[in-house]
Write a protein that binds this DNA or RNA. Structure first.
Lengths: 136, 136
DNA sequence: TACAAATAAGACTAAATTTGTCGTATATAA
DNA sequence: TTATATACGACAAATTTAGTCTTATTTGTA
């Protein structure tokens, strides 16, 4: 199945929310989770990952929260997906960080690998081209 | 996660195999499953689905098997995915055959829906553009 | 006609992944 | 010092995917 995971879905919702607030105001995990009826703990972890990967910045403590630093034009869907430790590799053999030999036994002799790699390249461009601006 | 399921992966392997044999010779499920070390029963079911959806044709009995009728240019990745009853809808709310209200509680007020629908349209074009020819 | 080779189809099980929860730690403004 | 917020990892539940098993049907050939 080709689809966004909940993680990605919630990340996009949150990013849209934060982006729409501009670059001055903070949004908190609680605020967003209440607004969209998303599990607070789950969303919190997602925001933490996004912060860790500099998609958003975080400030701890009272009056803290998350906000953007970068321009919405400068953050791509690729970056968001990858910062959540997710992937948009179409097949196991094309995963960047997991060239796990045991993942696919036929990888060596597989005649599908090359054609799919070409499709994958086109998909990479596809996701690189989509930015947070497209969500606003 | 954005990736092909095993079903899709195996379908593509099989389709490539069958396509490379031309339009006269039959390929059997056993032959392909042996060649690629894929579970015979699983592959058989996948080929049955493809046949049911006229991606390939099937002939029962001794000397039977599967082969192509259509030109490899005329079968798209979209069609293959859909014939397996899989989907490439990015979010639950964008699924063609399942406008299941309970799938997403916030679908009505969701501000992400429209931007994602635009991305989805671009993805549809992406998959419509890829044909079996790209696997050969 | 009997048999072997092949597709057809559905129910069931096992494995893997995803989703969500819980507990604890740390930082900070008031 | 307390309330509010992020940070992080372990665990549990739920869902989905992958694979197996069984039975039926079709068809060429010895």
């Amino acid at each position: 199945m080709i689809k966004f995971s909940r993680k990605t879905e919630y990340a996009l919702i949150a990013i849209q929310y934060i982006a729409n607030k501009g670059i001055t105001e903070f949004s908190t995990a609680k605020e967003i989770s209440d607004n969209y009826n998303i599990s607070y703990e789950l969303l919190a972890k997602i925001l933490q990952r996004l912060a860790k990967n500099n998609i958003i910045t975080s400030t701890k403590g009272v009056n803290g929260g998350y906000k953007f630093l970068k321009s919405p034009d400068d953050v791509t869907l690729s970056e968001i997906i990858e910062s959540l430790n997710e992937s948009y590799a179409l097949t196991r053999c094309l995963k960047k960080n997991r060239p796990n030999k045991t993942d696919c036994q036929i990888a060596d002799c597989c005649t599908l690998k090359n054609p799919v790699a070409i499709i994958q390249n086109r998909l990479n461009i596809f996701f690189d081209d989509i930015t947070i601006r497209h969500l606003m």
